[in-house]
Simulated scan of single mutants.
Amino acid sequence: MSVDMATSDPEDATRSRGTLLMKVPGRARPQKQALKEFNEAVTELRRRYEPAFWPLVVPEARDMFRWRVLLDCGCAQEVYTHGDDRFPDDRSYLDHMTDAQLPPGEFWCAATHASAPNPYREIVEWCDRKIIDFPADPEEPEYAMDPETWALIRHDGPHSSAFWRVKLECGHYGQVCTEIAWKPEDGPKLASRKRITEMRADFEESWSTDGDGAWPAEGPEREHLRKMLDLRWPRPAPDQDCYTCAHISRIVGYQRIGWLVRRTPPVPAPAPRIDRDKIAARLAAAEAEVERLKHQLSSVEN
């Protein structure tokens, strides 16, 4: 079930709508169960936001129309739209990993699926950043590092880093850590050619001696590392692995269920009460007037 706030697809005006209507396999949940879970989600939204923001972020059950959507992973999920005149692929859904909006047509499946390695995507936009302060690193090595390596990277005093929110070429978002003074227009810092030669030799030796236990394993991640060495180890890197790409599903069909809160047809207004006596009197008067006019017309003709 998805009750996160929707955003409209800017391409709505130019693409065909409702092209994925179909019979989705399976059955919808009972209406009472759907309404109960919706109200629980709304309660959580109201807990997270101040009342002043509720009209913007908290949907009303009476406005929600239920749909079953079929995903390309084979799963069927239930979603809502504001009204019955919008389709599930008219809106963007929430990326639960980054709290950003997914590109239209994508959906985060709640089921667990086997996935391919995270693909690397080019960074196309550096959006904004936040500064986070850290205490000094402990003297003892962390992350299973050897003492020599830990001594090289350890911060012996408090320090701060900038964490940038970045947009990737796939339309998803990620996060990149940089030095505080760095700006996108500065471009990446590059390692010296001598240092790259040393790093390449170290990696190749590790891969040849450690065999299957070497990091990273043979495959896309190791190929990406070689690519970064060819580029002289740019920092920050021009791309990033995208977890969302490896786990997201696409909507391939949808079917109407109905309103979340059943709507009662309006009761027709009662017909006005007919007073037969008054109508009979009016009819008699009209007939008498007709007879009078006939008599008057006959007198004129004679």
Rank of each mutant, 00 (worst) to 15 (best):
R226Y: 15
A201N: 10
L231P: 05
V267A: 13
I274G: 03
A201L: 12
A100N: 11
L35P: 00
H82K: 11
E221F: 10
L229M: 13
K189A: 12
A111T: 05
Q77T: 06
G74H: 01
D230M: 08
E169M: 08
A288Y: 06
A285D: 15
A191F: 12
P220G: 05
A41R: 06
S249G: 05
S206D: 13
V58G: 02
S160F: 01
E205I: 07
A111N: 12
Q175E: 14
D212A: 11
Y173H: 13
A246C: 06
A246F: 02
S115C: 09
G219N: 01
C127D: 08
C73H: 02
A162E: 04
N118E: 13
R263V: 00
H295I: 09
E139S: 07
D239F: 05
C242E: 00
P25K: 05
W67D: 01
V58T: 08
D146Q: 09
A110L: 12
P268F: 07
A269G: 08
L293S: 07
D95V: 02
D146V: 05
R165K: 13
A284F: 03
Y120M: 04
T81G: 00
T43D: 15
R232W: 10
K32D: 09
K23G: 02
K130D: 12
L35K: 01
E148M: 14
D146G: 11
P184C: 03
W54P: 03
E301C: 08
E125H: 08
A110D: 09
V3S: 09
P188C: 05
A136E: 09
K294F: 11
R282N: 12
K183P: 01
A61S: 07
A13S: 15
R46H: 08
K167L: 06
C73P: 03
E291V: 07
A284Q: 14
V124A: 05
D72W: 02
D212C: 06
Y120P: 01
H96K: 08
G213Q: 02
P188R: 11
A111R: 15
R273Y: 08
M97A: 14
H295F: 07
K183W: 06
D89T: 06
W215M: 11
A217L: 10
W207P: 01
E185R: 10
K183N: 10
M228P: 02
P117W: 04
Q240D: 09
D210N: 14
D99Y: 13
G83D: 00
E122H: 12
P30Q: 02
T19L: 10
V300S: 12
L297C: 10
E148H: 10
R292S: 14
L70R: 13
V267K: 12
G18P: 04
C109Q: 01
A144F: 13
S92T: 14
L190H: 15
R15V: 05
L231G: 11
A28K: 00
F65V: 00
A144I: 02
D239A: 04
F203E: 07
C109A: 01
R235E: 12
F65C: 02
Q31K: 03
P141D: 06
L225T: 07
A288F: 06
M97K: 14
A76Q: 14
A136T: 03
A237C: 10
